[in-house]
Design a protein around this nucleic acid. Structure first.
Lengths: 197, 197
DNA sequence: GTCTATAACGTGATAGAC
DNA sequence: GTCTATCACGTTATAGAC
């Protein structure tokens, strides 16, 4: 588990972890701008200066904290077939965890380091794993467009908080947008099994 | 035409316009955070305090400045048939003007007033005009999903600046994503006329 | 009486001294 | 590691110009 941090002198590791935990909580609930260094330090019960000393800047702390807050890895697991609806189910139902984190990140993407991290994350977690599993000459393009389309619905839920979509029929929502996603994954005439009713 | 503002005292109207022009330029090139009130004031050749005095706050100035920077109105004009590809063409080709403005806005959406304005703009300019022209029982839902999907590709270009999409074949890009948009507008078996080659 | 400019306040982020 | 100083920023109060 430990990479290169010696386990003996880790009284500061606990501090670092406490800061990260506080940062996670506050950043995801109040956003980047709405959260102050002093606030994080207070919740972690340390002096506000050592937060910077440990992480370099508020921006870098944000990136580290956000990293551990979302579990996107498993989002695109499983067969490509039917993945469109599956990922939409995760988005619609699991709105509390990773979806909110996404919104927090994109809202803070005015900051350069956050912006770079966002782009890299989308490429690494969304585009790359799909592109290598997809078939066809335009697989890479379609993977990028899939990511864009996914970002769109994530934005609706978490960035500009579309009110209507929150009240819409989840099943219909998952079907309609999910099939649009699926169209990019498997562009051949590949009708997803329609749930009756 | 004038509501309650006496037309005699318009020496300040020029100042207001100068501030707005400077704000537009600087906000769109450096973002909300990267631009200071003092910087705007310097470019408009006025004192930094009167910027706030005229617009109330930096946030409100941003909203006003951004308002005149984008021309989204005409984006969804014309018949629904083929609109998917047309809007994609506008997005891909007109990347310099309104698309960048969108990115600037969404990156600043951490601010409450900007966030509200963004949601309202999407609803008013994207969702509402489409919903009343679309047919079918799920027209409103599909209009919202159309907006979400559009936001997705706009984000790719302007928010997290996808490198690949900038180098991809524009025609293929327009066709692939545009047809995905069209699918929400006219869900019936409605093949868009394929441009040869 | 408006519109403008100077000065000052509070806050947040960061660097440097113990 | 902790504390203090400093700097920039948005904002407000107040005095001055037309």
């Amino acid at each position: 588990m430990d990479e290169h941090a010696p386990p003996r002198s880790d009284r500061s590791a606990a501090v670092k972890e406490a800061i990260l935990a506080a940062a996670r909580t506050l950043f995801t609930s109040q956003g980047f701008e709405g959260t102050g260094i002093r606030e994080i330090a207070a919740q972690a019960e340390v002096n506000h200066a050592i937060v910077i000393r440990h992480f370099g800047s508020k921006e870098r702390l944000f990136v580290h904290a956000i990293d551990g807050a979302a579990a996107w890895d498993s989002l695109l697991d499983g067969p490509l077939d039917g993945l469109g609806r599956r990922v939409m189910s995760a988005v619609v139902e699991g709105r509390d965890e990773s979806v909110r984190t996404f919104g927090t990140t994109i809202r803070a993407s005015g900051r350069p380091e956050v912006h770079d991290r966002l782009r890299e994350t989308i490429e690494r977690l969304f585009v790359a794993p799909l592109a290598e599993r997809m078939e066809g000459p335009d697989a890479v393009l379609r993977a990028h467009l899939f990511a864009a389309q996914l970002v769109g619905i994530l934005s609706a839920f978490s960035v500009y908080s579309d009110e209507y979509l929150g009240t819409a029929d989840p099943a219909l929502l998952i079907r309609t947008y999910g099939d649009g996603l699926q169209r990019l994954l498997t562009p051949s005439p590949h009708p997803a099994p329609s749930t009756r009713g």
